Computed example of a mutant assay.
Amino acid sequence: MNIQFDKRDPIYLQVIRYFKQEIAVAHLKPGQEIPSRRELANQLSINPNTAQKAYKEMETIGLIYTEGNMPSKITENTALLKNIRTELIDEATNNFITAITPIKVPLEEIVDLVKKKYLENENDKEDTND
């Protein structure tokens, strides 16, 4: 696991966002076991209480489930899993719109810039994968 923590959001929320992103890109599959809370804390060098808080929140929203003393697993609720990707896209879009609106950039210019940056980013990824 490779999470780059920022100082803006609580770490447990960043852990949840990471799991959502991994689900959205199918790196984590429905029913797949995930590390124990203690293992996660060790892997990410975070406080075990923080890992516990992230898991508790993910269980509350139905992202993961734990049966008895078995390892926690990713939900198999297909409707919830489909909504995760939409939620992440909406969150990113809303953040972008909030940041760009005060600059009063015309929509066509925004679309062109987003396309250009997106394609540059894709090309950069391809270059590093070669």
Rank of each mutant, 00 (worst) to 15 (best):
4 Q>M: 13
7 K>Y: 06
7 K>Q: 10
8 R>K: 07
10 P>C: 00
11 I>E: 05
12 Y>C: 02
12 Y>R: 08
13 L>A: 05
14 Q>F: 03
14 Q>C: 02
15 V>A: 02
15 V>D: 01
17 R>Y: 11
17 R>V: 09
18 Y>R: 06
20 K>M: 14
22 E>R: 15
22 E>V: 12
24 A>E: 14
24 A>D: 14
26 A>E: 15
26 A>V: 15
28 L>Y: 15
28 L>N: 11
29 K>T: 15
29 K>I: 15
30 P>H: 12
31 G>R: 02
31 G>L: 01
31 G>Y: 03
32 Q>A: 13
33 E>A: 13
34 I>G: 01
35 P>Y: 12
38 R>A: 09
38 R>T: 14
39 E>P: 01
39 E>D: 12
39 E>W: 01
39 E>S: 11
41 A>S: 07
41 A>D: 00
42 N>Q: 06
45 S>T: 00
46 I>P: 00
47 N>M: 02
47 N>P: 01
49 N>A: 12
51 A>N: 05
51 A>Y: 05
52 Q>K: 12
54 A>D: 10
54 A>T: 10
55 Y>H: 05
56 K>Q: 14
58 M>S: 10
58 M>I: 12
58 M>Q: 10
60 T>I: 05
60 T>A: 12
60 T>K: 15
60 T>R: 15
64 I>D: 02
65 Y>I: 01
68 G>K: 10
69 N>W: 04
70 M>D: 11
70 M>G: 03
71 P>R: 15
73 K>R: 15
73 K>Y: 04
75 T>P: 14
75 T>M: 12
75 T>K: 10
78 T>G: 01
80 L>T: 08
80 L>I: 06
80 L>W: 00
82 K>E: 11
83 N>H: 04
84 I>C: 08
85 R>T: 15
85 R>W: 04
85 R>K: 14
86 T>S: 07
86 T>L: 09
87 E>N: 07
88 L>C: 02
90 D>Q: 08
91 E>F: 04
91 E>K: 07
92 A>E: 13
93 T>L: 12
96 F>W: 11
96 F>P: 07
98 T>D: 10
101 T>K: 08
104 K>E: 06
104 K>G: 00
107 L>G: 00
107 L>A: 08
108 E>Q: 05
108 E>T: 07
109 E>V: 08
109 E>N: 06
109 E>L: 06
111 V>A: 12
114 V>R: 07
115 K>E: 13
118 Y>V: 13
123 N>W: 04
126 E>Y: 04
127 D>H: 03
128 T>K: 12
129 N>H: 06
